[in-house]
Design a protein around this nucleic acid. Structure first.
Lengths: 233, 233
DNA sequence: GCAAGGTAGGAGGTCTTACCACCTTCAACC
DNA sequence: GGTTGAAGGTGGTAAGACCTCCTACCTTGC
């Protein structure tokens, strides 16, 4: 294998990145796969292990790989990770982060829900129903939060806009740690009702209703967090 | 210098990253600064050059550094870069990217403008006026686009929400290449008028007017792009 | 037969040294 | 004075050694 055929790789590392990315993209990504060992990759690609390491590190930061010490290099799909890192760097203070996070969600998610109402396929609807059932039957808070996040993810997915999905995945992961401490019994029941209304609006294809239901939901979640942070004082 | 005093750096690279980040943050970032050479850093931090390289590469990807072959390592503030990379990876097709980009901007920017109207300080207003004057007196399209982007950046800044600013910086950079081909004379004149209305609403402190003006502006910009992409066929 | 423990191999993590490619500077030359 | 090219410093790549960590298998004991 040789990299000279590729288009203007400014450096060897870049070339190897391109090859690996192509290798990853070109495979069925349904099951998590493992890459060959660093030394093996270096030999196959005709470069040193140094270059392979820098390339895999880079792809790991981009959320395409996960490097595990002593085990190997796993192919994953977590493209939202870089944004999470950026946000953590940008706003070190957790409180400020949550407040700004909620404002941003309020900008994005109602629109995402509206687009979902307009564009969702039958497959999307089925997924949404499944996730909502999971939310209803979740045994504990941890499971409820997981289902909650999955629901928002599915809505962003149904919106047909990949940017929404990327942003919401990131915002969800950033907000996760705090949610673990805020959702209580009442919060969960409210969340189920809210999500039911959103789901119903999307099924009906009503963009306006979906937007409004999502708006209500996020505003409520925001108040929930405010209470929790007050209680923490 | 020793890293053992730091809180649980899982690996040497991570420790060096933390140290470098602190080193960068702790300096006046007004002027672009240069880091010591890799070899020098390695000696100062008591680690090998390999570790320093991996750490600096990582911080470069996060948009905190820029490594220049043969010259040195520059401290920069481009935290939005990772999101740009993610978006490029996520949506390789430029056309689809622009469409989804516009939808996302339409979700975020009107709200950002509204918050700016509510929260902008005198300093923010002054900056906005300055940028708008730059836009009006821009000699060519390139300068106009630069001022255009600066205007949106300043509005996001005035919104007081760092996430807005991060997102908009990224979206602006992604959309830049296309804008270079779309803005014409008429587009520029329209843009100046739109921005004047937005600015006026923010100065007045009217969130509703700022939101609506921004919405109008982005919708117009979107149509501009549609026309341009049609013409390209 | 099964389970707990140990061990060997292979994976990534780090270090060292050497050399290559690139940029800047400055002095010698035209 | 302007041009050119050599020198020195910078990051880029290579190769090989050794360490830490994880996994899987095998041994040992019940």
């Amino acid at each position: 294998m040789n990299i000279t055929a590729l288009q203007r790789p400014v450096s060897l590392v870049e070339g190897v990145c391109q090859q690996l990315a192509e290798l990853i993209r070109g495979t069925t990504s349904l099951e998590e796969r493992w890459l060959p060992a660093e030394r093996s990759l270096a030999e196959q690609l005709g470069v040193s292990r140094t270059v392979v390491r820098e390339a895999t590190k880079r792809l790991e930061q981009q959320g395409m790989l996960e490097i595990q010490h002593g085990t190997g290099i796993k192919v994953v799909n977590k493209l939202h990770r870089p944004l999470c890192d950026s946000l953590s760097l940008l706003i070190p203070d957790v409180g400020a982060r949550l407040q700004q996070l909620n404002e941003t969600r309020l900008s994005i998610e109602p629109d995402a829900a509206a687009f979902a109402a307009e564009r969702a396929t039958k497959e999307h609807i089925r997924t949404l129903r499944g996730v909502h059932e999971q939310l209803e039957s979740s045994p504990d808070n941890a499971a409820a939060i997981e289902a909650d996040i999955a629901m928002h993810h599915a809505i962003a997915d149904a919106s047909g806009n990949l940017i929404y999905r990327l942003l919401l995945d990131s915002l969800a992961e950033i907000g996760l740690a705090s949610r673990l401490r805020t959702i209580g019994r009442i919060g969960k029941q409210t969340a189920i009702e809210h999500h039911a209304q959103i789901l119903e609006a999307i099924e009906r294809g009503s963009a306006a209703a979906a937007r409004e239901a999502m708006r209500t939901h996020i505003l409520a979640a925001g108040e929930d967090m405010d209470l929790a942070s007050l209680k923490a004082i």
